[in-house]
Nucleic acid binder design. Structure first.
Lengths: 341, 341
DNA sequence: AACGTTATCGGCAACGTTCCCGGTAACGTT
DNA sequence: AACGTTACCGGGAACGTTGCCGATAACGTT
């Protein structure tokens, strides 16, 4: 069933069928109706490959996500997928694990010819402009805070929260309650990832409240996984370090950390308050419920593809959006108990 | 940069270049090397659309998933994506919400021309053979238990656990501890979904243990979401019904249900044991940890694409796999307290 | 020496579209 | 009546591949 068949069936030329299919003018209402009718009755579907070939552009937009294990991304993927579909595009998803050059070069570059645009989700924050060069289609970084300005701001589209500021607010919350010995659980401190941005916010908040950061109070899980978070927290908790609160860079990690705390004899929030950032739906159902900075994931997904499509379809250029997180108070934060010493 | 350019650059014909690109014989080692070299140095990538057009088959396999909110699917999506990539195919993901005909017809049918195969994740269990007819490419249903035999077994590939039997085992576990009044939380009872399969296992287990099922003890959430699960459980718990244990068809729902139970004054497992099925990594970190029937999600994902690719590449025909779940004991189950009356 | 074989290679049609360009008929306009 | 305009339509090249078929040269084989 090709356009040629339809043409023959209607007694018109291929060109005419093409015109009605693509909703172009210069075709009489009668013919248009007739063609439409046979198209429907034969339920003919234009061959996408042929279309792409001749127009040299497709309807595919890529979603490359790093670290699918992070449940926060599941939420975002969901809305990104929904929005891409709604706009009539096709989403092709690609997961990457770690090696960052996969992004700039191989995996994507290979597909590039087919893609109209790309949304990056959860990549590290230190793409260099150089790495990004091979990408010639529009792209937007979702959940990517360009605060460090590593990327020239006029060449990057992104939507995110201000990770540093968000962490700052969270930690300040703890300080306001009187906490002075505040531990942190991060995924890593050596790259310019979301983890480090939030870590810096933590440091800044401590300093602004006159607290000297202590090396011994920051646990590094090495990844965003619950398993690693549990292990790292356990290590911290059994290390003899004294702290009355913890700042944790992600909800999922916080949930694991809370278990680690309790497994080592500390009750949350009585013995240790916990505040996190992400705002998973899930963390309203744990015990205790999590006090956390909610990222507007719905909005982040929507805006990401809106911006991307604006670029793809030439309606607008680069744009970056910094969204405001919202503190959701749960049961994991309380004032510190009176110091024992 | 087309195949023609490469040909010109090498001083050979287009055919020859095509031959070396596709790793076909009938080309001298010298020429092959030369072509390969220029291909690399120009980093030429064959135009996929043209390929697909002429060969009339692509490298895309579809993943259509219903209910992305279910965190169990996140795990599976992850491994499915990984495996599809590894095999050199491209994954295009499509979410659907509810209306089942989207599956059989529209969304897929539209894309069909491009897809080599499809893996369905989380669709309802009552596709009719009729609905499936329009799908002409190989497909496999992941996490789909065809126990009801609604589909002719020789026309369907699937990989799943035996949902009924799994629920049966879970509930039997409760019975063995002495529980007699066992409530159930399901997503729905009216369709032939996973929810109903598990629900039937629950009923069967009760009967086999001489317990008369009670309408009043089954709560229907209406979906797999935590929100609905919480609401339904709360309703059940505040309804005056007496029960010492709950069987819940999904981990995520169980987590929400536990909160509902505790919010209405019942402690888990002291006042009410909870057993679920899924086996999310997450549920090892909640408090209490969840006793649950673990689905081998890793294996399910792997086998799904293995089966699919076997069909696509003509290595094998339909195949169905029923995997064995594993009971993971957590802290949410205990013997019933002595009856009060 | 004539012939079959084999190893290499190029030509060319085809895949299903889109889109430019040119053509025809019908209809004013002067 | 000759001309320009408009509305509609078809022809055909092009998009970048693949794969069939035929061509050539080199090499045995009888």
């Amino acid at each position: 069933m090709t356009i040629k068949d339809i043409a023959r069936l209607c007694g018109v030329s291929v060109s005419t069928v093409s015109r009605v299919i693509n909703d172009r003018p210069d075709v009489s209402p009668a013919v248009r109706a007739a063609v439409l009718e046979t198209v429907r009755s034969c339920n003919y579907i234009p061959n996408n490959s042929a279309r792409v070939l001749v127009r040299s552009n497709s309807d595919a937009v890529g979603l490359v996500v790093r670290g699918v294990s992070n449940p926060f991304y599941s939420d975002i993927i969901k809305v990104i997928g929904r929005e891409i579909d709604a706009a009539g595009y096709t989403m092709v998803m690609q997961q990457i694990n770690s090696s960052a050059d996969e992004i700039g070069t191989g995996a994507i570059m290979e597909r590039e010819k087919k893609l109209r645009g790309i949304v990056f989700l959860g990549g590290r924050s230190d793409y260099t402009a150089e790495e990004l060069r091979p990408i010639t289609v529009p792209f937007v970084c979702c959940s990517y805070d360009n605060s460090f300005g590593v990327l020239p701001r006029d060449r990057l589209s992104s939507v995110s929260i201000d990770d540093g500021q968000t962490a700052y607010r969270a930690v300040s919350e703890l300080c306001a309650l009187g906490h002075r010995r505040i531990a942190a659980l991060v995924a890593g401190t050596d790259d310019r990832s979301i983890s480090e941005l939030r870590y810096h916010g933590y440091l800044r908040a401590l300093k602004d409240h006159g607290i000297e950061p202590e090396e011994a109070l920051v646990a590094c899980a090495g990844s965003f996984s619950m398993e690693d978070a549990y292990r790292a927290t356990r290590l911290l908790a059994s290390g003899g370090a004294e702290f009355t609160a913890m700042f944790i860079i992600a909800d999922a990690m916080a949930i694991a950390a809370i278990k680690a705390l309790e497994d080592t004899g500390r009750e949350v929030p009585r013995d240790c308050s916990v505040i996190a950032v992400d705002g998973l739906a899930l963390s309203q159902y744990t015990r205790p419920t999590l006090t956390t900075m909610c990222q507007p994931s719905e909005r982040m997904g929507e805006e990401s593809v809106r911006i991307l499509l604006d670029m793809i379809e030439g309606r607008a250029g680069n744009r970056s959006l910094v969204l405001e997180p919202l503190l959701r108070s749960g049961g994991s934060v309380a004032p510190p108990r009176r110091a024992r010493d």
